[in-house]
């Protein structure tokens, strides 16, 4: 019976996956629709009826890119590249200009897109630590990620490492219950490093596959809090030598240029390997990740496109750029 259920699950999951994919695509498209329309309209307006681009056009591009939170430095880089190519190729029509602009932005995501987490088949659990400033959606992202991993047949344990914010432990506990995974928690106000220690110990004893450690939101300029993060990270070595195997920084898509400083400081404290960009279902464009990807070489793994348990998607840089420019 159990075998049959498992089989059924796999079956229904596969069936669902194509639907899911369509749905996901639609969601991303919808969420980026606003961006797309305004960008497209603006660019069309800029270049319609012209056979070559002049400085005014470039100024307009600058405005368009900056309005998507791409940032001054990155925008200038894109524009400069565009300019030099236009100079080289002399004559450029509308369509060419599009593909060049798209290409230039895509080039800033220089690595291949990340896949889902690959959990190695070893005795020790794979540990993911989730960090970020206040209110970006760390706990929600953990809930969605736990659901994803559990559905992939993995045994997941959550660690309630936000012991500071009022009712944060309750929040992640509700997610654990909702998703159906185990959680290790202590009282509010207890040492988060000790929670991480307990979680890893318990996960190891129970032969769990994955551990996800939540942490309290902290502004990246608070040195003591950033040191605390380093301490939480270091404590994990004592149980599992290579833990945490992945440190995921959660960024809010509506955050402006400050996200670059966040990436810098969190990387300094914990060596961030991947990003999750949340709240992309709003009007925010999240263009700041282009600059982060370019400057720090930290790839985006996931995007959050809604409050539902299924609303965590793999980031696809081509789709991200395409969704911005496609008609």
């Amino acid at each position: 019976m159990a075998f049959f259920n498992k089989f059924k699950n796999i079956f229904s999951r596969e069936n669902k996956s194509q639907e899911d994919k369509d749905l996901e695509k639609k969601k991303l498209d919808n969420s980026l629709n606003k961006t797309k329309n305004t960008l497209f309209e603006k660019i069309s307006k800029t270049i319609v009826g012209k056979s070559k681009i002049d400085d005014n056009d470039l100024d307009d591009f600058e405005e368009i890119l900056i309005s998507s939170d791409i940032g001054v430095e990155t925008t200038l880089k894109i524009i400069n590249n565009l300019q030099s190519r236009v100079k080289k190729d002399k004559f450029i029509n509308t369509n060419d200009l599009y593909s060049i602009l798209k290409e230039e932005i895509s080039n800033l995501f220089n690595e291949e897109d990340l896949k889902e987490f690959v959990i190695p088949n070893v005795n020790e659990p794979y540990v993911i630590m989730v960090v970020g400033v206040n209110g970006v959606g760390k706990t929600t992202t953990i809930g969605k990620l736990a659901y994803k991993l559990k559905n992939a047949g993995l045994k997941v344990v959550l660690g309630a490492g936000d012991t500071f914010r009022a009712a944060a432990v309750d929040q992640i506990s509700i997610w654990a219950e909702r998703v159906g995974v185990e959680i290790v928690k202590q009282e509010m106000g207890s040492d988060p490093a000790s929670v991480a220690f307990d979680t890893l110990q318990s996960a190891k004893a129970k032969n769990a596959d994955v551990v996800i450690i939540d942490t309290a939101g902290r502004l990246h300029n608070k040195i003591n809090l950033m040191n605390e993060l380093t301490k939480i990270k270091n404590v994990m070595h004592k149980i599992i030598p290579n833990a945490p195997h992945d440190v995921m920084l959660v960024l809010d898509a509506s955050t402006g240029q400050n996200a670059i400083e966040q990436a810098r400081q969190f990387t300094a404290a914990t060596k961030v390997n991947s990003l999750a960009l949340t709240k992309l279902d709003g009007t925010a464009k999240g263009g700041v990740v282009i600059g982060i990807s370019d400057q720090f070489n930290i790839p985006v793994r996931y995007i959050g496109v809604g409050e539902g348990v299924n609303d965590l998607q793999l980031f696809n840089s081509k789709e991200f750029v395409n969704s911005i420019f496609d008609n």
């Binding site: 900056i66 309005s67 998507s68 939170d69 400033v133 209110g135 809010d252 898509a253 509506s254 955050t255 402006g256 240029q257 400050n258 996200a259 709003g282 009007t283 925010a284 464009k285 700041v288």
Partner: peptide
């Protein structure tokens, strides 16, 4: 949020 970007 004071850190909000152009979407503000």
């Amino acid at each position: 949020d004071a850190m909000t970007g152009q979407d503000a």
